[in-house]
């Protein structure tokens, strides 16, 4: 369903608001118009703009999967004006949703392969739909290794799902934090060193990473050391965004728009961009 006016959001209702960490909440949204809701399809890796009317709108990766037919979930970290306003909302509130925008993780191409998910902080959120899809269609994919890292144990997103993930067939969950606390018995290590320690094999594998620029930078170095080719490493780019349509010209990297040509890029594609960020 194509909107006539792509800058006009769909009115939507905040169904549920779940605290994921001290500064990240999961927003479960439902589009109000039943016809639009029915036609609203999206793929892992795509994003939406969410509006707090009167304050503004910002882009967020969709963290749910369309095939569950349970609306649109986004995990939002409180960092500034719009995200603060969204965090103040109560269930039942009316928000705006525009999208879905951008390209997506080509999961069909990953069928039969081992998949390594490497996410840091809020950067883990857009990777969750890959995990959900792989676990829902488990036999289609090879091994799944999930590395979820955060500054501290309470900053790890999606903790309620850790047990399910860890208990799934052919699936390994590795949690790591920069600094532990008295209850933490898990790893205290930076994500890149976990990647190196696990000796992930590039054989028939794809590594997908998302997180702060510095984490991605060092994770890449480790993946390359392990023998991953640039077309086996997938990441997402960020950019200031005002439209999602390639019109506001805010999010370009060289002649590509992150909102339209991305946000998902392989390292091979990134190395060919005119502008290097």
């Amino acid at each position: 369903m194509k909107p006539e006016n792509p800058l006009l959001p769909y009115l939507s209702t905040l169904q549920e608001l779940i605290d994921l960490t001290p500064d990240v909440k999961l927003f479960r949204l439902e589009l109000n118009d039943p016809d639009i809701r029915e036609g609203f399809d999206y793929k892992p890796g795509q994003f939406v703009f969410v509006s707090a009317f009167g304050v503004g709108e910002s882009p967020f990766g969709i963290t749910s999967v369309a095939h569950h037919k349970a609306g649109v979930d986004v995990a939002i970290r409180r960092v500034g004006t719009v995200t603060n306003a969204l965090h103040q909302l109560e269930p039942g509130a009316t928000v705006g949703v525009r999208g879905p925008f951008g390209n997506y993780f080509p999961l069909d191409e990953y069928k039969g392969k081992n998949i390594f998910i490497i996410g840091g902080g809020i950067g883990f959120a857009p990777l969750r739909p890959i995990i959900t899809t792989v676990l829902d269609y488990r036999e289609d994919y090879g091994d799944l290794v999930i590395i979820n890292g955060a500054r501290s144990p309470q900053d790890l997103v999606f903790a309620p799902e850790f047990d399910t993930w860890a208990a799934s067939p052919k699936t390994k969950l590795e949690l790591t934090v920069d600094a532990g606390n008295e209850n933490w018995t898990g790893r205290v290590a930076l994500i890149p060193s976990v990647v190196s320690e696990l000796k992930l094999s590039p054989q028939n594998a794809i590594a997908i990473t998302c997180g702060p620029p510095i984490m991605i930078h060092f994770t890449l170095i480790e993946l390359r050391k392990l023998g991953f080719a640039d077309n086996q490493i997938i990441t997402t780019l960020e950019g200031k965004m005002k439209c999602g349509l390639g019109k506001c010209a805010r999010c370009n990297v060289g002649d590509k728009y992150v909102c339209k040509d991305g946000p998902v890029f392989s390292m091979e594609q990134i190395s060919q961009l005119i502008e290097q960020f």
Binding site: L7, F53, G54, E57, K242, K247, A249
Partner: peptide, 24 residues
């Protein structure tokens, strides 16, 4: 030059979303 910015304003009677020129 066509880059733009988008902001919400509430200072008038009703809320409005406004687009304005921006410069790279």
């Amino acid at each position: 030059c066509y880059c733009f910015d988008v902001r919400d304003y509430t200072d008038k009677e009703r809320i409005e979303r406004v687009r304005s020129w921006e410069s790279c």
